[in-house]
């Protein structure tokens, strides 16, 4: 009833990270990080290895707590309402996390159970999620028999089983060929268009940055720039996204410092 009289409300971002720092011992992995991933958009989190992307994902998935700042998934603070936040969250980790011994469908059913979805419903959702990524025919196969790209697509299907509103992907195309990478990006973009979920995609690959609606550049634990690809290009005064990234990152770390 009240759904009709909400014309165009200021949308709650799928993910809102604000003022988060994190250190391992004396090494600062994240330094006052603030970023958003809006619903219905592809946000690329760009950074080189060691930029802090995986640390940020660990904090959002609550592997460990953020000591400073706040992390909200659809408005739910991950520390104060972990259950509500985690139930809105789908994750594809950098490492392969499927059980090779089990079948594709068994893997999905296990994941569904972890989110409180019973076996019957899990099977129904699993098959339809597999159909979306074009792997319905492989449901009964052992995961071991799949190719790397197919495993990744199963992981995406799995991340969507509990119908999350935010999808996190940590360098999901590592080790995939160009065709599979392209296919994954297309699938995720389709999900955004069809379901309106928010996507935060960590990467260091130029072609994955170019398809993003928004880009957040993370370097040595700090957010160096946020904006559309066009804005980043304009700011760095170059048409090449790769050079733009290097320039933005270089702003605070001039080459001269290398000699220090």
């Amino acid at each position: 009833m009240t759904a009709d009289d909400r014309p165009n409300p200021a949308p709650t971002p799928a993910l809102a990270v604000s003022g988060v720092s994190h250190a391992f011992g004396s090494r600062k992995a994240l330094d006052d990080v603030t970023l958003d991933a809006p619903a219905g958009a592809f946000t690329a989190l760009v950074g080189q290895n060691g930029a802090g992307k995986t640390t940020l994902f660990s904090l959002v998935t609550r592997l460990y707590d953020n000591r400073t700042g706040s992390i909200r998934v659809l408005g739910h603070d991950v520390r104060r309402e972990p259950a509500a936040a985690l139930s809105q969250l789908g994750v594809v980790f950098q490492a392969r996390t499927l059980d090779l011994e089990l079948t594709v469908l068994q893997n999905l059913q296990y994941h569904a159970a972890l989110h409180g979805v019973g076996p019957g419903e899990a099977k129904r959702r699993g098959l339809s999620a597999l159909a979306r990524v074009g792997l319905e025919a492989r449901a009964k196969d052992r995961v071991r028999a799949l190719s790397g790209g197919q495993m990744r697509r199963v992981e995406i299907a799995r991340a969507l089983l509990h119908e999350p509103s935010l999808l996190l992907l940590d360098e999901p195309t590592t080790g995939l060929d160009i065709g599979s990478r392209r296919q994954m990006i297309d699938e995720v973009k389709r999900l955004i268009a069809e379901d309106g979920i928010g996507v935060l995609w960590a990467t260091h690959l130029v072609d994955e940055i170019e398809v993003a609606d928004r880009v957040v550049v993370l370097h040595k634990g700090k957010v160096m720039a946020t904006g559309t690809v066009g804005e980043l290009r304009a700011r760095a005064k170059t048409d090449d996204v790769g050079s733009a990234f290097m320039r933005i990152v270089g702003e605070e770390s001039p080459l001269a410092r290398v000699t220090a």
Binding site: T61, L63, A83, L86, A95, T97, H115
Partner: peptide, 16 residues
């Protein structure tokens, strides 16, 4: 044992 990810998957469950 390549099971690294299994713990991560377990821990993103919303249950305590």
């Amino acid at each position: 044992d390549r099971e690294v990810g299994a713990m991560r998957i377990l821990l993103v469950s919303p249950y305590p």
